Structure formats: C-alpha cells, structure tokens
Amino acid sequence: MIAWLVIGGVSLAAWLWLLLCRGFFWRTDQRLPQGSEPRRWPPVAIVVPARDEATVLPESLPSLLAQRYPGRAEVILVDDGSTDGTGALARRMAEEHGGLPLRVCTPGEPPPGWAGKLWALEHGIAEAGERDYLLLTDADIAHRPDSLARLVAAAQEGRDLVSQMARLRTDTGWERLIVPAFVYFFAMLYPFRWVNRMSSRVAAGAGGCVLVRRTVLVQAGGVAAIRGAVIDDVALARLIKGAGGRIWLGLAERVRSIRPYPRLADLWQMIARSAYTQLRHSPLLLAGTVLGLALIFLGPPAATIAGAVLGAPLPALLGGAAWLLLAATFAPMLAYYRQSLWIAPLLPAVAVLYTLMTLDSARRHYSGTGARWKGRSYSEGRTWN
C-alpha cells in the first residue's frame, strides 16, 4: 500500500514539474514567425540528398520546383548512389514540370568517417557556391509553394538557422498511434521554447526542413564538423548555436513528410536506428531513461489501477491525477495531428513501445549492426559503406 502511495505521489509531482517547468514542451504554438518581406530577396540553393527515392520524388520534387520565390533559387538534388533511377527520374520531372532550375550531381561513396547523408549535403553545398542561404530538405518532404519565401523572411529577422518539423503521415492505425507521440517525446527532450532562446544551451533541429545562413555554417566549421553524426539535424543545430548563431525550431504548417510508415516494423526501424545514439551510447543513461519512463508513464496508471483494486483511494487519486495530467499534455499534439483525443490516455502504452525500441537500439549497437539506413550501417563517429 505504501509503495503505491509513493509511486502515485512521485508520479504526480513529476507531472506537475513537467507541466510547468519543462519549457511548456507540450504546447504546439511554436510556428514559423511571420517575417516582413525583405527589400532584397537573397539567393538560395535548395539541397536535397536522395538515395533510392524514386517512390517519393513524384510528389516531393514538383513541390520544390514550384516554389514561388521572388529571388534567385535553384534545386540541387544529390543522387547518393541510388540504384532505382532517382537521378534520371529527377531530370525527367524537371523537364516536365519546369519551375526552378534543377541540377543533379553524384558525390560518390562517402569517405571513412562520413555519414552518407552528410557527405551528400557536403557535396551539394559545394555545388551551390556563394548562395546566401541553403535550404537542406529531405527527398520525402513536400513544401507548399510559399514555403521557401516564408522561411527566408523568417531568417531575415536575425535568425541563422530556421527549422520546421514536417508534419508526418498519420494515415494508418500505427502511424496515428505512434507518430504524434514521436513528436511529443522529441519536444519533451528538446523543448522548442528553450531551443529558440539564445540564453539556453538546448539546441535541436528537424532535418527534413532546415534553412541555414551559409556564411554562419562555414564559420562554424561546415558540415565536415559533424561528418560522422547519425542524428545530423540535432548536431547541425548544436554546431550553429555553439558558434553563436541564433536558431529557431517549430512545428510546420506548410511542410509535410510523404514517407509512409504503415507497419509497426517500419516505425520501429525509424526510431530504433538512432535512439541509443541519442543517449550517447551510455549504459548509465539507458538505465536512467528506462527507469524514468517507467516512473513517469507507467507509474500513474499502475497506481490508479492498484489503488482501485486494493481499495486504497489515495494512491488511486494521486495516480489518476497524474494520468490525467499526462493525457492533458498529450492532447495538444493530437489536436495538431487532427487525431482523436481518446488516444491521449493510451500514451503509457506507447511509452512502453518506445522503451522497447530504445532497448532494441542498444542491442543493435552492441551487436555491431548500429544504425542502418538504405543499405548502410552507421555508428557515431564511424561509418561503413
């Protein structure tokens, strides 16, 4: 009885702290600032690393070519060793759709120590030359026609890196259950308000849509400074902020991912390939994360149910209050993704899945497989082709 009372009380205290003292991570109001129209629209290069992306390019690439940008802009697609005709398809689509000019280049296999995507970005940025801004966007990201102009306008207000977390797909049951929680957990780890505050050391970005000022990137050491990073978006944001740059991160309204994750196995692979890297491959951090997740997410329903079964109203009341706070903080993210709020009380079950994915990520690391993507295996600081 005492144990359940303690679990319920600690869980409630933890959720009160998270609600009020964790940068209001649960709010979804960090959206792209409305910048004033620049007197001069700076030249921009849109750099798209692409490896075997022929299935998604027909929807994403036309959205880039169709950008209504008042200044000079071009798209540079870096065909990173594709075997499905990605480069040839991109050229055909540019001929058919018109719009912004497109260049397709091939960097070759990454040298030792380079992650494949970062090697492709390095090559694309070199191809871009002396552009004021670089929009680094993934091949599975579709943009509204005014996306680039709005990003540049926001950056011109004194920001050196502007990143938007693309709205992910939520078409299948597993996507609806897991995707909003994925973004929620990311915001819990990197509260957007703290990221956007110069006085805070917290830095993060969303790799699908990052506009960066080229001169600041060069001064910070360029992509080469993070060449082995598996979680490249967070590494890039830390690089820019660490060099004194001002960064901004928020949720997207005009940028969306079209990559499907229809099965649990697909979502599991997406999360497990980098979860242990997020913990810096530390067994101590892994143990602390598992215990923390258990207390914060499993403690409330466990205390509620145990109190009800044992006829102990106080543990049930404390656990129920914590469970209610847990669900309430998840509700804004569900609303952002236009999902039913009945999913909110199920967050503890999703947290169990995330815990298992994190443990599997650690297992992969120690078994030597590391993070895998498109036929390549990565481990922080080391790359296998």
Rank of each mutant, 00 (worst) to 15 (best):
R39E: 14
R39T: 07
R40S: 15
P42L: 01
P43Y: 07
P49L: 07
R51G: 02
D52E: 11
E53A: 09
A54S: 15
T55F: 08
V56K: 03
L57M: 10
P58T: 03
E59R: 15
E59G: 13
S60G: 09
S60Q: 04
P62S: 09
Y69S: 08
Y69K: 09
G71Q: 11
G71M: 09
A73G: 10
A73L: 12
A73I: 06
E74F: 13
L77C: 11
L77N: 05
D79F: 01
T83G: 13
T86Y: 00
A88M: 11
A94E: 06
A94N: 07
A94T: 04
E96C: 12
H97A: 15
G99H: 06
P101V: 05
L102V: 02
L102R: 04
L102Y: 07
R103Q: 13
V104L: 02
C105E: 11
W119H: 15
A120P: 10
A120I: 02
E122F: 13
H123M: 09
H123D: 12
A126P: 04
E127L: 14
T137S: 15
A139I: 12
A139L: 10
R144E: 15
R144D: 15
P145M: 12
D146S: 11
D146Y: 06
A149E: 09
R150T: 00
R150P: 05
R150M: 10
V152A: 01
A154W: 01
A154H: 00
A155D: 04
A155M: 06
S163G: 08
Q164T: 11
M165Y: 13
A166R: 12
A166G: 09
